[in-house]
Every structure is written in C-alpha cells, then in structure tokens.
Design a protein around this nucleic acid. Structure first.
Length: 426
DNA sequence: CCCCCCCC
C-alpha cells in the first residue's frame, strides 16, 4: 500500500479533504439495535500501517454497500462521517469511529493486501488450544470449514435455551477442531450460500424493484372545506393516527444556516458522493450510468392558527417554497436572505403532509409532499376536485415529481384516506 | 421513493 494517502490516525473529527487507503479487515453481520429498530453493521478497516478504525453502516446503507465493501479487499475512502465514539457506550472515550453513508466516496483498488491483514493476527495452533480451556482469553485461529452440523437447542446450566451449531475446521496439517456458533452467530454466520437463498435475499431486499407511480395519486383532490384540513394542534408533539393529511397554513425557514440541497442520483434521488454532472454507478438503485445532480431540500416550520410543526420538504415542494431551484441553491455560498429566496409565506397555502412515526420517540417527523397555492384552485370550475396537475410550480399539465414520488403503499394510503372521507360523508 | 441521524 502506497503512502500518498492519509493514515487512519491522521483523520480526526473535522478533518477535511482526506483519503485513506484501507483493507476491510472484519465485516460483522448486520444487527438490530437493542433500544431502537435501527439496523447497523460494523466493519473494521485497516490502513497500511496496520492501524484500525471501526466503521459503521446504518439502515438502508447496509444493503446498498454490501457488494461495495468486501472482506479483504482494498479501497480508497474519503468523506466518511468521523466522530468520537459516544462515551456512554465506550469505557475510554476519544476513540474514533467512521460512519459510511451515501456521502462517502469509496473506490475499489485492485491490490492484494491479504498479507498485511494476516500479519496483524496471531493465530493459535490447533494443538495449543487446550491451554486456553476455561479461560476468557480471546484467540484467533485460521482454518477451513469442511462440515456444518445441524443446529441444535441446548440448555445452559441456568436453564436458558440456546441455539448452537457446530462447524468442523481443518488446518493445513489436517488437524480438525469443532467450532461452536452460539445464538445470533448461528443465524448470521452459518448460512449456507445456496442459489435459492441468494435469490430469496434479493427478493426480500428488493434491490432492483422500483416503485411505479400509481394512477390513483393523479386523481387526488385538494380539499377546499375547512373541515378537511387538520389543525396543527392535533398532531403537534405526538404520534398521529393518520399518516397523510392536509394543512392550511404558512411555512417559514427558522434555521437559516442549513444546507438547502444535496447531491443526488438522477435515477433514484438518493444521495451521491460524486461531483455535479458526473456519471457513476449508483449503489442504491444499481443504475450503471446515474448522473449526479443537485436536489433541493429545506427544513422549515409549518404554522396554522393553532400551532406549529417542523417539517422537511425535498425536491419540487422545496423548490416551490423557496422560489428557487436546486442548481441555484447549490451554488449559493452565503447564508440566504429574503432577497435570494423565499423564506416565509405571506398568505396561507395548502400542504399535503406525511407523518413519519418514529418507533421510540413519542413525536413524529413531518414531510411536505406537495404545496398548493389556494389561488390556483380558487377559479377552478371543478372547485373541490382540483386535480393535482395544479400543484407545485409547474403548470404545464405535468404531474409534479413530488407526487410521482409517492410509492405504491402511499398511494394505497391515499386511497384509504379518501375512502374514509367518502364513507363518513366529509 | 429522496435529506438528517442512528449502535454497542
């Protein structure tokens, strides 16, 4: 491994413009967090000097990067989120951890660094294993799996049931040992890799399935009667029963110093680590010729006479609210002023809002799916049945992308909401 | 659909 790149210990929280060449030294199975539904996966990355750092992937990034960061392979990594591990979790604070996300740039390097990797381990010979019986010492062995026994349930001496599974390891001298996997290691490490399982995984992870916009959503009507709007006080600060609702009120930016855009994949809108205009293979949608383009986003406050909520808008509704576009927002270097974009509304507008309930928090997050100016529907002959073509900042009859973005489930939800309204006569 | 963060 060359030395024109930084080393792991050169990178601290706040360091910018770094690139470190690393080998994936360990890759643990994804796990579900104890106190939240979040999935996480830890990796150990090693630089040319054998220093290591823990890298973590969360949620959807786990599957996105599963073929990107392979055990034993070498990568150039830049722009990972670098932070000190939470002192609450680690006895000694100050330890560094990297978070790998869509922002992180990862480039495969065709280099074989397995010797480096192996050199950092000290393997215990099979014949020396008896020395460590009944001690709590961590040791490493190297061998090949030649047999996987059926899993079995055992009782510990405290009466607890545990699932275990035995693997047979063989070394170069053809000595064998039995390695027992316990509990989650049975599920995670003992999987046979038959074709059918791989296919099952692909189906359950739906890498290649993208949602198709439903015709339903294009028939969604903007309500005009006051009773069709949700009062903010009824959703403020708690989980809501409904997932989608209409609010009539005003939006304004309260946190001026925020990033009003992110670099995205032109195919799936997910975050990209590439430069504007570059063509690249997207790890999320697997599109091989994705283009990196800016996408607007804004974090704002939504108020009506009864209260306020914080909400995010992305893409079209963000551009419409800010009266700007993603490219301008990207090139804007100063903290914006009312002259450079719209920061608050003078008059009430209509918002279609999605509530995202958070498993552990009593509060939910809100996202604005689209915004309608009431004047756009006021003169409409079909008042109360305004088609969504009127929504957003495009009036050429094109359905705005913010609405096309609704996936099938959301469309179903919309249909249910509308049906509910129909059934109750409101 | 998209952003943010997230775990021991």
């Amino acid at each position: 491994m060359g030395d024109k790149f930084q080393l792991i210990h050169d990178v601290s929280p706040g360091t910018t413009g770094w690139t470190v060449k690393v080998v994936v030294a360990e890759k643990f199975s994804p796990r579900v967090a104890q106190r939240s539904p979040t999935k996480y996966q830890n990796l150990t990355l090693m630089d040319s000097e054998g220093s290591t750092v823990q890298a973590t992937l969360y949620g959807q990034n786990i599957t996105a990067f599963q073929d990107e960061l392979l055990l034993g392979k070498t990568y150039l990594i830049s722009n990972a989120l670098v932070k000190e591990t939470n002192a609450e979790y680690k006895a000694k604070s100050g330890e560094i951890q990297w978070t790998i996300s869509g922002r992180t740039r990862i480039r495969r390097v065709e280099e074989n660094n397995s010797n480096l990797l192996i050199s950092t381990y000290s393997f215990t010979d099979f014949e020396d294993l008896p020395k460590y019986m009944d001690s709590n010492v961590d040791i490493s062995v190297i061998g090949m799996i030649i047999d996987i026994k059926p899993r079995r349930i055992i009782q510990t001496r405290f009466g607890k049931e545990c699932q275990v599974q035995d693997l047979v390891l063989v070394n170069k001298r053809f000595d064998t040992v039995l390695l027992t996997m316990w509990e989650t290691f049975v599920d995670n490490e003992c999987k046979g890799h038959t074709n059918s399982e791989i296919i099952d995984n692909m189906i359950s992870e739906k890498h290649y399935l993208t949602s198709t916009p439903s015709k339903l959503s294009s028939k969604l009507s903007v309500p005009t009667a006051e009773k069709d709007f949700t009062e903010i006080k009824n959703i403020q600060g708690l989980k809501t029963v409904k997932q989608f609702f209409w609010i009539k009120g005003k939006a304004s930016v309260k946190v001026l110093n925020q990033t009003y855009w992110y670099m995205s994949c032109n195919n799936c809108n997910k975050i990209s680590s590439e430069n504007y205009g570059d063509i690249y293979p997207c790890v999320f949608c697997k599109c091989t010729d994705a283009k990196a383009i800016p996408r607007a986003k804004v974090y704002m406050q939504l108020t009506d006479p009864t209260g306020y909520i914080n909400a995010t808008a992305i893409g079209n509704p963000a551009e419409y609210f800010l009266q700007s576009n993603a490219e301008i927002l990207m090139n804007q270097t100063l903290i914006p002023t009312a002259a450079s974009m719209r920061l608050s509304m003078d008059e009430d507008e209509i918002f279609y809002v999605k509530a995202i309930t958070q498993e552990l928090s009593p509060e939910c997050k809100f996202e604005i799916l689209f915004i309608v100016n009431p004047s756009q529907i006021a003169g409409d002959k079909n008042k109360g049945k305004a088609p969504v073509e009127h929504i957003g900042n495009r009036f050429d009859g094109e359905i705005p992308s913010s609405l096309l973005g609704l996936n099938f489930l959301e469309s179903l939800q919309l249909q249910e909401n509308n049906l509910a309204r129909f059934n109750t006569g409101i």
